[in-house]
Design a protein around this nucleic acid. Sequence first.
RNA 1: GGGGGAAUAGCUCAGCUGGUAGAGCAGCGGACUCUUAAUCCGUUUGUCCGGGGUUCGAUCCCCCGUUCCCCUACCA
Length: 501
Amino acid sequence: MNEQPESTIVQDENHVIAERREKLKAIREHGVAFPNDFKRTHLAGDLHVKYGEKAGEELESEQVRVAVAGRMMLKRVMGKASFATLQDVSGRIQLFVSKEAIGEDTYDAFKKWDMGDILGSEGVLFKTKTGELSVKVDKLRLLSKSLRPMPEKFHGLSDQETKYRQRYVDLMMSEETRNTFIARSKVVAEIRSFMLQNAFLEVETPMLHAIPGGAAAKPFMTHHNALDMQMFLRIAPELFLKRLVVGGFERVFEINRNFRNEGLSVRHNPEFTMMEFYAAYTDYQWLMDFTEQCIRTAAIAAQGTATVTYQGREVDLAKPFQRLTICGAIQKYAPQYSPTQLEDAAFIKAELKKFGVEPLEHSGLGALQLALFEETAESQLWEPTYIIDYPVEVSPLARASDTQPGITERFELFITGREIANGFSELNDPEDQAERFRKQVEAKDAGDQEAMHYDADYIRALEYGMPPAGGCGIGIDRLVMLLTDSPSIRDVILFPQMRPE
RNA sequence: GGGGGAAUAGCUCAGCUGGUAGAGCAGCGGACUCUUAAUCCGUUUGUCCGGGGUUCGAUCCCCCGUUCCCCUACCA
C-alpha cells in the first residue's frame, strides 16, 4: 500500500552509531564479524543456583570451567583488569577480565567493545573479595556487535512509547517486563494443561470468516483474491467450536486471537487472546465452578498464590466467587433503587438519561436493567463476582431459562471492575436459534452495526442435533493484566497496536 | 469520536511567566589489577516533535498539526 522503496528508507543515525559502525568495519577486516561457533555450556542463572552458596576456597579447589554468553550490560575497565556483566536469558553473571589471562591484544579489543555487545567467554568460576560469583576469564570473544547505544544503564528505558514500539529494548533493559511475559506464558501453559487434564481437545478454527459471528462486534474486513470474496477476521470462534460439539468432540477449547475493529484503550487492543471452551452435557452452573477453578489454578501458576494484589489493592481468587443477578448487583451496589423501581422500564430509562445513556428505542426491561447495572454496579465489582441471568435480547446464542421468561442461563465474570469471562448454557434448539438470527438481521437492517448475520450453515449444523452444552470465553490478556499487576493491556501484549511511526 | 496531559543530546532528566540550552549516563582521549550505576582527569554531541503567529528576540506565550500517556465512548 504505502510501501516505501527501500532505497529511500533513511535510518536514524548519530555519532554514537557512526562510531560503532567504524568499530564493526575494523572487526570485519580482521575476519568473521558475526561468528557462530561459540559453544555455551552454562546459563548465568544456573551457575548462581549451583555455585552461588559455595565458599571461595571450595570453588578454587573444584576449578569449575564454564563457557557463558550474553549481552554486556555493565563494564568497569581498570588498567590491567576489568569487570563486565553479561546478561543471558536466565540472569546475569560477572566476568573478571585480566590482561594477564587473556593477553594484551584481546584486552585492548575488549576495552573498545561497547555496552550491548554480545560476548562469549570461557573461564573458571571464583568468588571476588566481596563474595560475588564470577568467571575468571581466559578466553573472550565478541559474538555480535551492537550498533545502537543502550538506554541509560541505571534508569533503563522509561519512555512508554519506546517500550511498546521497541519491545526488544524494553525486554533487554527491564526485568519487570521480562517477568510479565514469562508470567503470561505460564498462565497460558497452565490453562492449556488444566483443559487437557479435564478431557478437553485443543482445536484451531478459522481466523478468516465469510460470515463474522459469535459476538456482537465490528469486524475487520479483507478480501481473498483467488476466491474474489470479501472476508472478515474473526470476532469470535464460538460458532465453529459449537459445530465441533455437533460433530461429537464433546469437549473442545481454543486459545487464539480475536479481532475487533473498535476503539483502543487501556483494556482494548484490536487483536486480543481468548480461551474459549465448550463442554457437552454441562450448563452455566457447571461452567462457573469450572472457570473459577481454572482462573485460580492459573493464578497459582503465575504468582504462586491465589491472593494477588492489583494496583495496590488485594484481590482474593482463593475464596468462592460471588454470584449475583443483575438486579441483585444493582441493589447491593446502588441501594437507592427499590425492587419496584427496577421493574419499571420508564423509571430506568429516566435514570439512564441522568448517566448520559440513551437506550435504544426497542430496549426491553432486561436490557435496561443491564444498562443500569453497567452504570452503577459494574465498576465496583472488585472481588471476583459472577453476574448471572442476562436478558435474551442481548444474548442471541444463549439458552433461555426454562423457568424465567426473557432470561438466559448466562453469566459474566467481573474482577477488579472488569469483565474477564463470559459464558452460558448453549442454545441448541435450531428453530429458536434461527428465529434469533432473524431478529439480529432485523436489528442489523435497522442500523445496529454490531448485530449478527444469519449463519445458515450453523443452523444446519444445529439441525443435526447438538447435545446440551455449556460454553465460556476467558479474556487471556485481561486475566494476565490482573495476575501481573499491569495497568494497561499494552503491558501484557508484546507488540501492542500502535500508529505507524 | 470527545476531554485532559506530555514531547529538550543515543538514554534519564534540569532549564527562573521571553535574551539563541545544561547535568548524569553512553561515546571519544587518558590514569587505574577486586569493581558493583566503579572512580578520577579531559572532551564531542542538539531541526529544544513539526508548521505558522506574537515579539527587537521564542525551548518558554498563542494557533494548527503529529505521536504517546490518562480519562471518556463503543467493547472483551
